[in-house]
Nucleic acid binder design. Sequence first.
DNA 1: GCGAAATTCATACTTTTGGCCGATGCGCGT
DNA 2: ACGCGCATCGGCCAAAAGTATGAATTTCGC
Lengths: 140, 140
Amino acid sequence: MRRTILSYGIAMAALIGLLKFVEYKFLIRDIPLEFYIGLVAVMFTAIGIWAGLRLTRPKVIEITGPFEQNEAALKETGISKREYEVLELIAAGLSNQEIAGRLFVSNSTVKTHVSNVLAKLDASRRTEAIANAKKMRIIP
Amino acid sequence: MRRTILSYGIAMAALIGLLKFVEYKFLIRDIPLEFYIGLVAVMFTAIGIWAGLRLTRPKVIEITGPFEQNEAALKETGISKREYEVLELIAAGLSNQEIAGRLFVSNSTVKTHVSNVLAKLDASRRTEAIANAKKMRIIP
DNA sequence: GCGAAATTCATACTTTTGGCCGATGCGCGT
DNA sequence: ACGCGCATCGGCCAAAAGTATGAATTTCGC
């Protein structure tokens, strides 16, 4: 962990150096500052995403055994791709509001999806949907 | 997806605007450009991490084979016998009313038990309680 | 390209759930 | 006897979840 942080520090330093260089180049050619700032923003956003995923990855990979999904059963329910995403998040214990935030849609949309999932899984509560989906082997 | 990208675009635009403002402030006070750039970098790294985490889907851990209950974890939660029964029925997808019928108690009692279970599992929704309990291996 | 399916969103309504209070009775150990 | 945890119940309120309906877009298979 200490090593990891150190690595990131060095990488950051290197990047700052690179930026200085780019900055020099750009300023020489009289390219507007806004453009340069935008470039920096995009670069570091990308770095942030990358770093974020790197640092959190070890936590999520905890698969104990092979989960074989019953594709047939899933298809039979008629659950769409988006609806399945919602179902996964429901099973993860998220609220409609949280799901909306995660999927970048409105609360209304999530409710629609949830309602569809409930109907397709023959359930009237999300907890029942989870139980049914598990029984049918369409979610781990 | 298009919407997602659009959202980011708008968010970016807004942030650039904010940056312009900050920039103005800083330049007025003759603070070096490097500092400003660094600020931008840090900000957008943070944004990137946030976005990355937001986009990461929660991986559901799976339990295969014989279920061996983590007695220690269960004891640690302080969940009582009756509360555990309720928890099992929650996980089975029953409503409070149904649980009340199954355990021959009133709806109020079930609600009390549910509330206690939620508190002891550090959850605020029954679905979250299920997910947590599964992670802690106190229910199959 | 056309049409069906999928995705998105809103509004209004009912039901369920959860939080917070207090209260009673019962058994158990000191 | 007293305190303590557990189980039981009720009321009230707010938030979340679910239902129904309608509609605008987008996507995708043919």
